[in-house]
Simulated assay, not measured.
Amino acid sequence: MSLNLSYGDLGDACAAAHALDLIGDRWSLIVVRELMFGPRTAPDLRSSLRGIGAEELNERLRFMERAGVVVETELGYLTKTTAYALTDWGRDLEKILSALSLWALEGSAHYPVPSTGMTPSGVMVAMRTMVPPQSVTTQMPVRVSWKLSDARCPEVEQQQFRLDWNEQVFDLDVGDVPRADVKVAGDSTAWAGVALLGHSLDEALAQGALRVDGDRPALERVIRVFSEAMAAVG
């Protein structure tokens, strides 16, 4: 994929137009979302990016690499596996994803946001979007650990995330947290429903979509904060 017939070629020197040449196609920002918490292989990305073909994904990754948004890397020490990771510049696109998400939610009365499914990375990016630093409250501290998989993509390994939330910091990222107060495991879409859409935690537990081990009241405080943030936007 090349930059032939870019906005610049057509006489438009706007920086926003140039950005659209780089990441304005259907898939680029979704690739960025799935790489936000660490490197992924092309097959894993394809499983998470529903509707994209292998050739189209590989072409998009090659273009994003030439553009400086992603970089090819390796996973593992003994068996080298090719994967893709975001560059520092690529990680800066999280603020673009967050702004687009908030814009879509604010206009949901005109064109509702779908609620059909979310990947583990997708729901965690959404959670980081919905709680800006000024929302940190004295209801915390709390430490939460998640192990989430996408029930629609059973071949993709689960991803682990952790939240360390106290009066000074809201730190939601990939990995584990020592001495977690509560641990959540299960389907990412089910967790998105509970945390962001007001679905019943009891129902998700009863259906086996989620499992909770530890301080459930602490988890419910976290859910309440996110539910209130979603309600404020919608």
Rank of each mutant, 00 (worst) to 15 (best):
L61F: 04
G208S: 09
R128V: 06
V125E: 06
E72W: 07
S188P: 00
M64S: 03
M124N: 09
A190T: 10
W89F: 05
V136N: 03
G198C: 13
L45Y: 03
V222R: 01
L97P: 00
F161C: 06
V225F: 04
V31R: 02
T41H: 00
A229N: 01
L172E: 09
T189K: 01
V169R: 15
V156L: 13
D150N: 06
V222C: 05
L3A: 12
A13N: 10
N166I: 12
M1D: 08
L5Q: 13
T138M: 13
G117D: 11
V136K: 04
V156I: 15
R128H: 10
F226D: 06
M140Q: 13
T87C: 11
A15Q: 11
M127Y: 02
M64K: 00
R66L: 13
F170H: 02
C14Q: 03
D213I: 10
D187Q: 06
R33E: 01
P132R: 07
S149T: 07
A54R: 08
V71G: 08
T79H: 09
A231W: 02
G198K: 12
Y111W: 11
T189A: 08
L3D: 06
V169L: 14
N166A: 11
M127T: 02
A232S: 14
S28V: 03
V222G: 00
M64P: 09
R46C: 01
M1T: 10
E106H: 10
P43A: 12
Q160D: 06
Y7I: 10
M127C: 15
N166L: 11
P141C: 01
A231F: 01
